[in-house]
Nucleic acid binder design. Sequence first.
DNA 1: TAGATTGTTAATCGATTAACAATC
DNA 2: TAGATTGTTAATCGATTAACAATC
Lengths: 212, 212
Amino acid sequence: MSRVISNAVIRRMPRYYRYLGELLDRGIERISSNELSHLMNVTASQIRQDLNNFGGFGQQGYGYNVQYLYEEIGKILGLDVTHNIVILGAGNLGQALAGYVQFEKKGFKIIGLFDVNKDIVGMSVRGTKVRSIDELHDFVKENHVDIAAFTMPKDKAEAMAKTIVNLGIKAIWNFANMELSLPEDIIVENVHLSDSLMQLSYNIAKYNREQK
Amino acid sequence: MSRVISNAVIRRMPRYYRYLGELLDRGIERISSNELSHLMNVTASQIRQDLNNFGGFGQQGYGYNVQYLYEEIGKILGLDVTHNIVILGAGNLGQALAGYVQFEKKGFKIIGLFDVNKDIVGMSVRGTKVRSIDELHDFVKENHVDIAAFTMPKDKAEAMAKTIVNLGIKAIWNFANMELSLPEDIIVENVHLSDSLMQLSYNIAKYNREQK
DNA sequence: TAGATTGTTAATCGATTAACAATC
DNA sequence: TAGATTGTTAATCGATTAACAATC
């Protein structure tokens, strides 16, 4: 049985990946946990502990090979396989995600965009045509879908979650501002924009209190 | 000197607010930490500890008045004052935010939408016309701006951050997939969609490993 | 008043940091 | 080899949970 890796660690992995990608772009070949710690504003100890949850990627006296570590973290994050995504809700947010994922993210592919609104069905967004939500069932039967992105209005989300589960899709990237009730084995990643904005607002309020 | 409140607590506050809002909609007047804990899947102890960072909002033998607690958390989160937002980058993501904030979020107001692209300057998005980024300087002098939302392409973000700081805007809601280097007193809330997608991908990879 | 439930202190658990032996 | 830096164990710190006296 594999060790349980805490959520705190997992949340930090994409950040490591991001920084290593930048180092790679800058042509830097090796880096020590100490150097990286200064760059990222964390402790070297934390970096070494975090990485050693997954394996020993460094070498004593040398540090870490940037390219190698970048690739290994990529594998840990599952970026070495392609994930097929359908976007459910082709409004501005759905379109924004389509463009963003399609152009910027290796390892992810938008294979379908769906909407209820007949006015936008048939339109082409970033090379993907918008289909009617009625076609979703057949589409999923004919195409392998890894992830459903929920960008439809909130009131449609719960019903759509049920549909998705019935169709056998295992993962949801949820932008609907609510928590979906789902079976245990469905993987959900919530993006609560509202919560994020409130945290910003909290920090502004705190700042203002402190200025007084 | 006020007690330092941990980030873990602050991240949970918007979630409490969300659940209490729902209870309010459902016409529920009072709730105990125990009932709420079952609803939210956290411990009653944590709820009481979290709230008591900010004050004693409950009553022994009774529990918490939903309306009152909702309002108090609202104040803690700074939702009792209106925040003026400018959105910098009027592409799909900027437009999505404009619609979302304008219609759904009390306490926040989109007062300006800016873009470099001459083709969309002059367009009207959800009741706000898109201005040229060249007008930003004058606009900020004439209007009170609390928050700048960064929805422009990544390569414009660092330069824009400098501009924003010079104009005296104190808070940034950052959707650019990078960490901005900013003075200490600027408040930043990052929304790293990329990190979120990677966490989802990590969990899919983990799930697949466990199935084997 | 008796019962219920908070606010708060104490105990536990987990995450972070420090230290250092192993080793390249 | 000597110096550098990892991997890993031990120490510390902070967050969560449990317990209970205070009190409505």
